[in-house]
């Protein structure tokens, strides 16, 4: 195993462009979970980002909350301003693994690990986050919604590094996140959903129900229509099933069944909508 220790972000970009097989690592909570049994990981060259001050900051601009690539879940959990403006981020962060994972794991790492069960990603999607990629050739901004191509495939070139996650500041009437796992902590999600409502704009994103964490455009339209009294009022969770089925494609795996995931997604959405008076 080789670990590269860049002194600056420029060094890191150079190292990445010199060797396309280098794997950047920040918290290591995903990459080293199966250490040392996973033989491939033992012969990997890692680029240790943890010393790069440029990636560390979490800052506010007039229009955005900017999470530097090294921002951990715990940084967010302990920030009262985030809790006030983007409560979903805190709710989700508190449900990732255990405190130890929350203290080391980063939001950017959660994005590029590209697990369909990533707990950090649905809330970022529902907040319309943008991923900023940097490389020797400059920076590129990609909406998170367009970032994933397929299971574990994403629009990040090997020479690019996630440097920031940018979240637009809006006024939300509602924002909530629900995770259904096999137990209340240290559990990988069976099904999760994040919802935000800003004016008439709905954002719904779900995890563990498709090859990638994904937005649910049909559900968003349906909910917006129901909320705007343009559609049939909701009477039961099964009203949501056609939209769910057009948005997601859950499978049976070691953690749950496709049917349970679909049913529970419909039910938690239905009741959240009911509670919200929709």
């Amino acid at each position: 195993m080789t670990i590269l220790l860049p002194g600056t972000l420029t060094d890191a970009y150079r190292m990445l462009s010199d060797d396309p097989d280098v794997t950047p690592v920040a918290g290591g909570t995903d990459l080293f979970a199966h250490w040392p049994e996973n033989r491939v990981k033992q012969s990997t060259t890692y680029l240790d980002l943890s010393g790069l001050a440029e990636l560390r900051s979490m800052r506010w601009t007039k229009s955005e909350l900017v999470l530097g690539a090294l921002t951990t879940y715990w940084d967010v959990v302990t920030d009262a301003r985030v809790a006030a403006e983007f409560p979903n981020l805190v709710t989700a962060a508190r449900q990732v693994g255990a405190v130890q994972i929350q203290a080391r794991g980063t939001w950017a790492g959660n994005i590029v690990n590209a697990s369909p069960a990533a707990d950090g990603v649905p809330v970022l999607l529902a907040y319309d986050a943008t991923v900023r990629l940097g490389s020797r050739d400059g920076v590129e901004d990609i909406p998170l919604d367009e970032f994933y191509l397929d299971y574990k495939k994403m629009r990040r070139r090997p020479d690019q590094l996630v440097t920031e996650i940018r979240i637009p500041r809006r006024t939300y009437q509602r924002a909530w996140f629900e995770k259904v796992g096999p137990r209340k902590s240290q559990a990988i999600t069976k099904v999760g959903v994040a919802v935000t409502v800003a004016g008439e704009t709905w954002r719904i994103a779900a995890n563990s129900v498709a090859p990638t964490v994904c937005r649910c455009p049909a559900l968003e339209r349906y909910c917006a229509a129901v909320a705007g009294a343009k559609g049939q009022p909701l009477t039961s969770p099964s009203d949501l099933l056609p939209a769910i089925r057009s948005d997601v494609s859950p499978i049976d795996d070691i953690r749950s069944t496709a049917e349970y995931r679909e049913q529970v997604l419909a039910r938690i959405l239905f009741h959240a909508l009911n509670d919200a008076g929709v």
Partner: peptide
């Protein structure tokens, strides 16, 4: 990781 047993919660 996947063999689940109860936590404090």
């Amino acid at each position: 990781l996947e063999y689940k047993s109860p936590t404090f919660h």
